[in-house]
Amino acid sequence: VTVHVDGVEYDFDNPEEALKFAKKVAEDKNGTYEVHGNQIRVT
């Protein structure tokens, strides 16, 4: 699973970890996250 944040890609073997990371980053920057299959984009 790849999490995209501001043009940087973070790869996770564990989808739950990826989702947790995306949620935290989105909260920290008052943004949102979208899941597209095995890609998660934080905006």
Rank of each mutant, 00 (worst) to 15 (best):
V42W: 03
Q39H: 13
A22T: 03
D6K: 04
R41V: 15
G37I: 04
P15W: 15
Y33P: 02
A18F: 01
N38D: 08
F12I: 02
V1C: 14
D6E: 08
A26R: 03
F12P: 00
A26I: 06
E17D: 13
N14M: 06
A22L: 03
H4W: 14
I40Q: 01
A18L: 01
K24T: 09
K23F: 05
D11Y: 15
H4A: 07
G37T: 04
K29W: 15
F12R: 00
E34V: 13
E9A: 14
Q39F: 13
R41G: 03
N14R: 08
E34H: 12
K23T: 07
A18R: 01
I40R: 01
E34D: 06
E9Y: 11
D6N: 13
N14C: 10
A22C: 06
V42T: 03
T43M: 14
K23H: 06
G7W: 04
G37K: 05
D6H: 07
Y33S: 02
V42L: 05
V25D: 02
D13G: 08
T32K: 11
H36S: 12
L19M: 09
V8L: 11
A26W: 03
H36D: 13
V42M: 04
A26G: 03
L19G: 02
A18G: 09
T32Q: 10
D6L: 07
E9Q: 14
T2C: 12
F12E: 00
K23E: 07
L19H: 05
V3Y: 02
P15S: 11
E16N: 08
E17Y: 05
R41F: 15
E27A: 14
V3E: 00
D11W: 15
R41M: 15
A18Y: 01
N38L: 07
A26T: 05
N14Y: 06
F12Q: 00
T32N: 09
N30P: 03
H36L: 13
V5N: 03
K29H: 14
T32S: 13
V3P: 01
V3D: 01
I40T: 02
G31V: 06
A22M: 02
N14W: 05
Y10L: 04
D28W: 13
V1E: 02
F21R: 00
K23A: 10
V25T: 09
F12N: 00
P15Y: 15
L19Q: 04
G31I: 04
V25H: 07
D28P: 03
V5I: 10
H36V: 14
K20L: 12
K24L: 09
F12A: 00
T32W: 14
T2D: 01
I40V: 05
E9M: 14
F12V: 01
V35P: 03
A22S: 03
Q39K: 09
K20Y: 11
T32I: 10
V25P: 00
E34N: 07
D28I: 11
R41N: 11
T32R: 12
G37Y: 05
P15H: 14
H4K: 07
D28Q: 13
Y33T: 04
E34Y: 12
E34Q: 10
Y33E: 01
E34G: 04
V5R: 02
V1W: 15
D28V: 10
D6A: 07
G7T: 04
G31R: 07
Y33N: 01
K24Q: 13
L19Y: 08
G37P: 04
V35D: 03
V35H: 06
H4F: 14
Y33F: 12
G31K: 04
T2P: 01
E16R: 07
A26P: 00
T2H: 06
H36N: 13
E17K: 06
N38E: 04
E17G: 04
P15F: 15
